[in-house]
Design a protein around this nucleic acid. Sequence first.
DNA 1: AATGAATGAGGCTTCATTCAT
DNA 2: GATGAATGAAGCCTCATTCAT
Lengths: 190, 190, 190, 190
Amino acid sequence: MKSKDEQKESTIIRATLQLIFREGLAGLKMSNIAKQASMAVGTLYIYFKNKEDLLNHLFLYFKRESMTQLAQKIDFAQPFKVNFKQLWHNYLAYAVDNPEQATLLEQLHYSPYLRPEVVAETDKLLQPIRDMLDEGKRQMLIKNTDNELLLAFLSGSINQIARRFHENDRKLSPELREQAFDMTWDAVRA
Amino acid sequence: MKSKDEQKESTIIRATLQLIFREGLAGLKMSNIAKQASMAVGTLYIYFKNKEDLLNHLFLYFKRESMTQLAQKIDFAQPFKVNFKQLWHNYLAYAVDNPEQATLLEQLHYSPYLRPEVVAETDKLLQPIRDMLDEGKRQMLIKNTDNELLLAFLSGSINQIARRFHENDRKLSPELREQAFDMTWDAVRA
Amino acid sequence: MKSKDEQKESTIIRATLQLIFREGLAGLKMSNIAKQASMAVGTLYIYFKNKEDLLNHLFLYFKRESMTQLAQKIDFAQPFKVNFKQLWHNYLAYAVDNPEQATLLEQLHYSPYLRPEVVAETDKLLQPIRDMLDEGKRQMLIKNTDNELLLAFLSGSINQIARRFHENDRKLSPELREQAFDMTWDAVRA
Amino acid sequence: MKSKDEQKESTIIRATLQLIFREGLAGLKMSNIAKQASMAVGTLYIYFKNKEDLLNHLFLYFKRESMTQLAQKIDFAQPFKVNFKQLWHNYLAYAVDNPEQATLLEQLHYSPYLRPEVVAETDKLLQPIRDMLDEGKRQMLIKNTDNELLLAFLSGSINQIARRFHENDRKLSPELREQAFDMTWDAVRA
DNA sequence: AATGAATGAGGCTTCATTCAT
DNA sequence: GATGAATGAAGCCTCATTCAT
């Protein structure tokens, strides 16, 4: 027998992503995914129950991947602000370098495909960041404000910045990034 | 298309809105719009060339309406910060009170329906706000930073705050709103 | 507008029947029904919710039609046995002349398509025959036996006779029909 | 195909039977048969050329089994009517006790799966019964009528009785069975 | 022989758009 | 202008069969 190829699942997800980038979520067809992944349509249904299931897995897969990117060069031995700044820049860099991915996650989030339970599960991935914010508050370096407010502030502004600049075909120079970070820090500092 | 009956056009747009709010953009069908608007499908095609055309009109219609909400109680005779704060609260209130609308605009924005020219046209609606930010800079009250950055910062954070709280079924108390505004003001102040 | 053509429903049903006769229930495809009925597939779905619905209507339609055939030349002014014999011959004639139809109804009956409620409804159509049997019992002309037993006896034997002869490509001569009726009458007579 | 493991063939047929009883012929899938038989799909194709082949074997297997049931307690040393009655009761008991089996054979019979040659072969199994009828005629105990007519009469009525009572969830009491046999005997007796 | 992943033709159904009335 | 029945392209998914292991 041909044993169920574990990596085929990832092949399918990557193929799907490429297609969504190229043609949008609305134009996504199972038959094209199969073509892009060089396999038969039926094979997709061996690894995913249906289109909805595939997209839910895709969502989770990329949310996890993005969290990995965010955690780069974060070292809890370092002072809070150093880590905060690193995290912020990681996030911005990710959002800038993968503009379609952010858009995709957003699109999926509000599509009829995504199951609430999957959304809830991705939310848990943010826990390390919540912990970090708590630590900042303990050290009285940042405002003692509701975590959800802080998170919304951080993610909302970063995403929107990356998006607007991408839409207008503008580059985000290091200087602009620095200015943006300063605004963020001024916003959250105690 | 484009008949004398100007009001029917608006009826269709309103009916479409209600449907999108109730069932989402993805499930939107011309036949249902017709039903909701109490007319025949064919009639829709007298007033709008096709579904795409209808949704582009809807987007514009809607963006204009939201700008009207934002401008409430703004009076250029007042000091900058008063107006800035009022604008910020107007925006947040609008985003909180109409959580589906923000989502709708987002969904539409990234759907294959929306024509770039329409997106560009709605962007012009922000000009008064850009002017206001310029005035703030002239008075050296806010940072002398790129307007797109400032706008992204403002809209991104506000939308995200409204959205997260709506998703988690949490109320945004006046205290939290005040804290959020303080963060924003700290971020932009000179 | 083109007003919903009442007779189109019957056109579809007749087209479906012809197809089932030609290619069997198992090979029945909606696209072929449309072709046979000279209309677009979509049109089928205006008149019937789906394939199952179409087949349920078909079942009812033909059960009713067959009952009409059975009732021919039945006149309650005539003596019981005359009517009984006429009914029996009508039934046999119908089963012989429409061998596919009997088979179809049987096939449908045991297919996953047929809804129990529709089966129940067709059963009600037999009431006039039950009444007739009761009258025969009242006149002490036939055995005072359970109606279901009598009905099963009558319909089962007639259908099977028509079927076997049709399968073996044999004609049912008037003599054989007379013999068969005699057997039936001997079976039920008091 | 046709391997040494004769028993596996029977395992597959039994598994198929159970599935058809439980879920009907229309929903029968090769993958489910494999699951029910605790083997891989591929294995089915070692023992049977394809689905059609499997179902033809099943039909034959089954017809033979039912004939065995019918022959129980038949002893040619006994008088004709005793055997006839025994046969009739055997048949009815079988049809009543295995209501799905009769239906299955019927369904299969009119499915596109069954090959005519197999149907013809099963018909040969009826020869002992035909012989018995001939003997009855020779002894002038039953009508001198066409055997096909007699067979159709017998099988059609019995099957239909069993079916109707099963559908209506009614029990066939010994009294009713006796009445039914009396009708049959009156029908065929000379 | 046994396995079960892979294949892909083909079925049912939806829905934007057209057009006869 | 208004209507809504008619159209048919196109998408999702199933499942009998194959074949590499």
